[in-house]
Design a protein around this nucleic acid. Structure first.
Length: 600
DNA sequence: CCCCCCCC
């Protein structure tokens, strides 16, 4: 019975010395709720046992505390496997060298009620954590990866003179940075650097810039405010590697950053930044390139990396955004790649202004897929960046392809506006098309809307048409058993029924009379034109029944709207060129992006 | 402590 649960004897000593140990197993021997006024910040201090030692200052991070409280799982004698933890010094009172253990990730090995007793006879963990006095009798497994390098650096960090001896020193991985432990030095490459921005709001004003750091373990954003901007803006350069320490750590707002890290750093007066001038193994930006042809079938809003040759570049255009009144600057590139597809890339702001024509290979990191008029495009926005002729194999091979004939290959432009029938068109509403006078263009305006059939006008819903397959001209009944088609200049013994009618369709914005032909009315009525025609000729009640049954069903209506003159009066004529079942997934993603636009 | 990420 006593052997059923095996604790990692001596592991507490290893952890509290600042060293790493893989997934130690501990028993919880007590907990105490910490005083707080804020129920959201409720935390518990716990006593842990590794079977050999006891330690009374262990805590869970807020998120874990909350989930335990909500789940009601937490019990005395529980056995847990600690998957991720850090030690932290409580420095408020400099004389008290008190350390706590913050548990960031764990899993239950056994619940307290199943265990029901204290395992072993653990003693208080001694204050002196020298290796000899505390090491477990059996060798403990340590991490073999980069975190193992932290072993020597943790206890010695405070003694390092960052100004001249950082070279070659062991450093921490970005992935180990948390708000609970501030004594780290990271060595990381700058992959992206913003311009200096200024702000002014109710709380004050100031300037800031930010940059992104990368090492083999992960990435993190660093922001500098005000004085730090002057101090660091010129020092920080993209692609260079720096030793950085003593920053403030805070939660990252995922809304504004796509970096894979829960935290962000802020440079303070105490921060130390030193360029690493030696050769390093710190990785350079990783790209996950998507070929241009693939972009055509990817969802709007997806963030991708792309590499291509610039075939065309527009001048910078300046205009005022209708929605915000903000002055915007943009430039459009068209890039191609060996997938024989080209895409329009929109550069905004400074990226647009600073674009360099002379360099043909561009890499887009973190481009956002957009859509216009049925074609896809890429936008390089705040979180992404553009790079010219980067020193990566993909760039050389692309250049090779282009110079060896690729420049002459025809590429299909996935940004081409294709909002004709059968292709994806812009989502619009009847009301917006009217209010924005979108039909006032020569070719008509193509759009789609999710609509509900309100009324199918039954009068004159059919006509007798030329029986020729590709001729739908109304025939003239010669009343002698033959029918004449003026268009074909022929007479036939037969005819075919065709449908042509007006349907009142409602969408969220209002309703609209929409003209439809056979192919669309057949879908709405669930009958062929021939069936409808035959019923309509003999059985008016039957026709009414068919048209009534079409009501209140929902479809995607692809429409063409065009202003036309009727007796000197301008009227918006709307024709449905395609009716199909509403694709809820696609429509929802449109609605979500629309809500996001409204919310921002 | 910012947080605009857009246009036809």
């Amino acid at each position: 019975m006593a052997d059923k649960y095996k604790l990692s004897e001596g592991a507490l000593a290893v952890l509290m010395r600042g060293d790493k140990i893989d997934n130690p197993i501990m028993q919880v021997l007590g907990s105490k709720k910490l005083a707080t006024n804020d129920p959201d910040k409720e935390r518990h201090r716990m006593m842990l046992s590794d079977g050999k030692y006891l330690f009374s200052f262990a805590m869970f991070t807020n998120q874990i505390s909350n989930s335990i409280l909500l789940g009601g799982d937490f019990e005395m004698f529980s056995i847990i496997k600690i998957k991720r933890s850090v030690t932290s010094e409580i420095n408020k009172d400099k004389s008290a060298d008190k350390k706590i253990l913050v548990i960031m990730d764990f899993e239950f090995v056994a619940k307290g009620s199943e265990v029901g007793y204290k395992i072993g006879n653990p003693e208080q963990l001694p204050a002196n954590l020298s290796k000899e006095s505390t090491d477990p009798p059996k060798p403990m497994q340590t991490n073999a990866n980069s975190t193992a390098r932290m072993k020597t650096s943790v206890p010695s960090i405070s003694g390092i003179n960052l100004n001249n001896t950082m070279q070659g020193k062991a450093t921490h991985s970005i992935s180990t940075i948390t708000p609970y432990q501030n004594k780290w030095v990271i060595k990381a490459r700058v992959t992206n650097k913003s311009n200096i921005r200024t702000w002014k709001n109710a709380k004050g004003e100031g300037s800031l810039f930010s940059f992104d750091l990368l090492d083999e373990s992960g990435e993190i954003r660093v922001t500098a405010f005000k004085e730090s901007v002057d101090k660091y803006y010129d020092i920080i350069q993209v692609d260079k590697v720096y030793y950085i320490s003593k920053c403030m750590t805070k939660m990252a707002n995922k809304q504004y950053s796509s970096l894979k890290n829960d935290y962000e750093l802020t440079l303070t007066n105490d921060s130390v930044v030193q360029e690493c001038e030696e050769e390093t193994d710190i990785p350079t930006t990783k790209y996950d390139f998507v070929t241009i042809d693939k972009l055509a079938n990817m969802e709007v809003g997806t963030i991708v990396d792309c590499i291509g040759i610039v075939k065309q570049a527009s001048d910078v255009q300046t205009f005022t955004a209708k929605s915000s009144g903000r002055e915007l600057k943009k430039r459009e590139l068209i890039i191609v790649d060996p997938s024989k597809a080209s895409v329009s890339v929109t550069l905004w702001g400074d990226t647009a202004e600073n674009y360099d024509y002379t360099l043909p290979v561009v890499v887009i990191k973190g481009g956002k897929i957009g859509e216009f008029g049925g074609g896809k495009n890429l936008a390089v926005s705040m979180n992404g960046f553009l790079k010219y002729n980067p020193d990566i194999p993909e760039a050389f091979s692309l250049r090779g392809w282009y110079d060896n004939g690729g420049c002459n290959e025809e590429a299909s432009n996935i940004s081409a506006r294709s909002n004709m029938g059968g292709f994806q068109a812009n989502w619009m509403s009847f009301r917006e098309v009217k209010d924005q006078d979108l039909g006032n263009v020569e070719k008509g305006y193509y759009y789609q809307t999710a609509g509900t059939v309100i009324l199918v006008r039954a009068e004159n819903i059919f006509y007798k048409a030329c029986p020729q397959e590709n001729c739908n001209k109304k025939i003239v009944d010669l009343e002698n058993g033959t029918y004449r088609c003026e268009k074909c200049s022929s007479e036939y013994p037969n005819f075919k029924y065709r449908l042509l009618g007006n349907v009142n369709v409602g969408d969220w914005s209002g309703n609209q009379w929409v003209s439809m032909f056979s192919s669309e009315l057949e879908i709405l009525l669930g009958k062929t034109a021939q069936e409808v025609g035959e019923i309509a000729e003999t059985d008016n009640d039957g026709l009414m029944q068919i048209t009534n049954e079409a009501n209140f069903k929902q479809y995607t209506f692809r429409c063409r709207a065009k202003m036309e003159k009727y007796n000197d009066e301008a009227r918006l004529k709307t024709v449905a060129i395609k009716v199909e079942p509403l694709n809820y997934k696609e429509y929802n993603s449109h609605l979500i992006s629309r809500i996001q636009q409204l919310a921002s």
